[in-house]
Design a protein around this nucleic acid. Structure first.
Lengths: 336, 336
DNA sequence: TTGTAAGCGTTATCAC
DNA sequence: GTGATAACGCTTACAA
């Protein structure tokens, strides 16, 4: 078992345990010959260093905490993959913690990460606002938020977000370019600032192309297929239905696709549909969905790199980091 | 910051630090009055226990390692959610580690978990066989494998798997019951034992219903949509095409759906389609897919509970645990 | 009920 | 180059 410590090796090698410690970590201050002897011995004896003990004295755990709403959300999963892979490449380890969007659970998660002495925390897609941010600051290590608008980024907390406004600007502009002028927008959950931003991009594209904004073309969704289905039913009953619809996200668009199929509306013939996010299944639905790609893995990577810089810097203030905003990208498939 | 230790509290309270330790952990051996005083003090001073130090002396880290191929696989993500949530409920923490199906990376992951002194390891959907199992045993803590056939479960390693044979038996039997007798099977990756098992269940259902097994109705897929698409193209060119197709998994079935749409084959009118897994999107494709539900979260839960039992038992051998096999469940949607 | 001393497995700081 | 010794923050005997 992993019950052999540097002291055991020291005894076996006839040296002191600090020498073993040095040898194992390739310190130049140790005789080449004894160094290899110690290393061989360590291997033979099945030595495995104890990160807890090391961390206790060095003060660094090489561990970051990742707080998610639920890892079962494919969007979150991809972000986490980007985080984990970057962490791994840099010798860090990831502690995963889900909040299920419950405030108490999120607070408990952060508290637990504090207890485990993580070197940094990354929070994705949380909606738990002020009360929570306060708790976050208390943790005393860098915090990076992904797709989470925190108004005032503090000393230590930074954000990585997708440019929602620009993304939906691209989407809407594209619809206009291919000839649409009655373009609907199906909203997301009302309390998400991302919805406001996506709406803003939509309106901006209309404005720039001199298409008057028609509020009746904006109908509420909920970010899920059911919301999209309901919304499309509303839209097709209008006296003058839209020829295209831009959806808050892909899940909404999937609901639209389904409602269209039921109503015998041909896509993209009768109606063009654009989503947002590029979830993994966007290309597998029928017809494959035109959408705005959020660079999910890259966002994870950027957040992790930022965390690394913050934890490894002597003085994080000197780093003069700024929040990161990444651009989405339009991918045209067959729904338009 | 988290720089206050029990010694600091001890000083402030005028007691010794073991007393603080006892008080904070609700030991009955400490005066009620001083206990509350100490607790208040701890809160005021912003005390946060250090799990590393605690773990070092108790020998338990209350941490489990979870090794996955990639968390971006929705199947894996759901399993991990089951694991994480059960871990959380029992005061455990999850370290996530991806292997990308690369053996060296998987071995490195396990080594890292050893260094971090996890109390147990759960591995999902790995295919990395013998070489790897050997490494796993070396870790010296319980290992539970999910959907991973290890032939000889060792002292410490157990498995949680879905009953592949029975699941596809259910699927095929159902197709027979609704009147099909020419039923194709599109296989998964050839080297997966799950494919052999699913194939076996398919053949068993045919046999029990006196339908002769026709090898020409078994066509190779690859577990992904492209494989399903290719396979269906082969099937429809047969002089006597099948009226139903059972697919190795949902991803394959999605490919079939797409090929059918292209070929103007109506589903389920001309062709009934059944998948396996019940990935989140199975209900969002068109038509919503009839499939076999793998209880993914439950499998994660069971694996975690098993890990807990194993780590917390005095003598794991006395537990007389056995590998767990869970039953899948048929869910009939609109593709049949 | 509380304090003293020891120890968990490391690394860091000194001497030698 | 190497070895004592202390320290990290905690728990657990054992004493008082």
């Amino acid at each position: 078992m992993g019950k052999v410590s540097i002291k055991d090796i020291a005894k076996a090698a006839g040296v002191s345990h600090p020498t073993v410690s040095r040898a194992l970590r390739d310190s130049p201050l140790v005789n080449m010959h004894t160094k290899t002897r110690i290393k061989d011995l360590a291997r033979e004896m099945g030595y495995c260093p104890d990160a807890r003990a090391r961390s206790l004295v060095t003060g660094r755990s090489y561990t970051v905490g990742v707080v998610v709403t639920t890892i079962a959300d494919p969007f979150v999963a991809e972000v986490v993959q980007g985080i984990e892979s970057t962490a791994h490449d840099n010798g860090y380890t990831v502690i995963l913690s889900s909040s299920n969007s419950e405030p108490e659970r999120e607070i408990a998660a952060v508290e637990m990460l504090r207890v485990k002495r993580v070197d940094g925390v990354i929070v994705t897609s949380s909606r738990i606002g002020a009360l929570y941010l306060e708790h976050l600051e208390r943790i005393g290590v860098p915090v990076v938020l992904i797709n989470n608008h925190n108004e005032q980024s503090g000393h230590y907390t930074y954000t990585v977000t997708v440019d929602n406004r620009h993304g939906s600007y691209l989407a809407t502009k594209y619809l206009i370019q291919i000839g649409h002028c009655r373009i609907a927008y199906i909203t997301g959950p009302a309390d998400h600032s991302s919805d406001a931003d996506r709406m803003a991009g939509y309106r901006q594209a209309l404005r720039k192309n001199s298409i008057p904004y028609d509020p009746t073309l904006v109908v509420p969704g909920d970010g899920r297929p059911t919301g999209g289905t309901r919304a499309l039913r509303t839209l097709i009953e209008m006296r003058q239905p839209p020829s295209a619809v831009f959806c808050y996200n892909d899940m909404t668009a999937i609901g639209v696709l389904r409602a269209a199929q039921e109503a015998n509306i041909s896509i993209p013939g009768d109606l063009a549909v654009v989503g947002f996010d590029d979830i993994p299944f966007a290309s597998f639905v029928y017809p494959p969905l035109t959408t705005i790609i959020q660079p999910k893995q890259e966002m994870g990577r950027l957040a992790m790199e930022m965390t690394l810089k913050l934890t490894e810097a002597e003085d994080p203030a000197k780093l003069s980091l700024t929040d990161i905003m990444v651009e989405g990208e339009l991918v045209v498939r067959e729904s338009t």
